[in-house]
């Protein structure tokens, strides 16, 4: 299974390492010509959403990827990746793909001193270590958005059709369950 990992900035190497462990075939998406090859899924990693969003636009990747996501390309967005997917950003005038009907708040837990880790149950997985680094939160959701995991009564991970968006960093944990879930979804959607 070929998975494109957006690699213009951020913790893309960690996602690639995780996918390799799971015998998927990850490759880096750094510019338009990287999209010429066929792929079955897309990962939007953690990093700085402003940096990634700007590069997506200027490297002419945004529209192409947006169209693929809208047409059903399975996508997993983690932290900044969730922000890129969100339809609305409460404290930022920008939006990027805008394909996931949620409103997120950037840096919702404050600066680095507010970063934390916590274990919580993810639907279909069970207890999972959630790592939040200057993380966003999901403030509101549209119809049809399924909550995968909650902390303090707030959604921290959601699924909407082919899109999974999480505010935390499964790629930093050594636990491949979220990536497995994502790959399984791709398998299932092929049948």
């Amino acid at each position: 299974m070929r998975i494109g990992v957006l690699a213009v900035q951020g913790a893309f190497a960690e996602h690639i390492a995780m996918l390799q462990k799971l015998d998927a075939e990850p490759f880096e998406i750094r510019q338009k010509r990287d999209l010429e090859q066929p792929f079955d899924g897309l990962i939007l990693p953690g990093g700085e959403s402003t940096t990634m969003g700007k590069l997506l636009r200027e490297l002419d990747l945004l529209e192409d990827l947006r169209m693929r996501i809208a047409q059903g390309l399975p996508v997993l967005g983690t932290c900044a990746g969730l922000i890129l997917l969100a339809e609305k950003i409460a404290n930022d005038a920008h939006t990027y793909f805008g394909t996931l009907p949620v409103t997120v708040q950037r840096n919702s837990y404050g600066r680095q001193l507010g970063s934390f880790s916590q274990t919580a149950d993810i639907k279909g997985i069970g207890p999972f270590p959630l790592v939040f680094i200057r993380a966003p939160s999901i403030e509101a959701m549209g119809a049809g958005v399924e909550v995968l995991v909650e902390i303090d009564g707030k959604a921290a991970g959601v699924r909407y059709g082919n899109q999974i968006g999480v505010a935390f960093h499964p790629e930093l944990t050594g636990n491949p369950a979220v990536h497995q879930l994502f790959l399984q979804r791709i398998e299932d959607s092929k049948i």
């Binding site: 690699a7 213009v8 900035q9 951020g10 913790a11 893309f12 190497a13 960690e14 953690g46 990093g47 700085e48 940096t51 932290c79 900044a80 680095q112 970063s115 934390f116 880790s117 916590q118 790592v131 680094i133 200057r134 960093h169 930093l172």
Partner: peptide, 22 residues
């Protein structure tokens, strides 16, 4: 608190990971 000491150091290393490629 389960995220003091070592956890804090981990979180701090992880912020640097988010800055990579930047």
């Amino acid at each position: 608190g389960s995220h003091m000491q070592n956890d804090r150091y981990e979180l701090n290393k992880q912020l640097a990971q988010m800055l990579k490629g930047g």
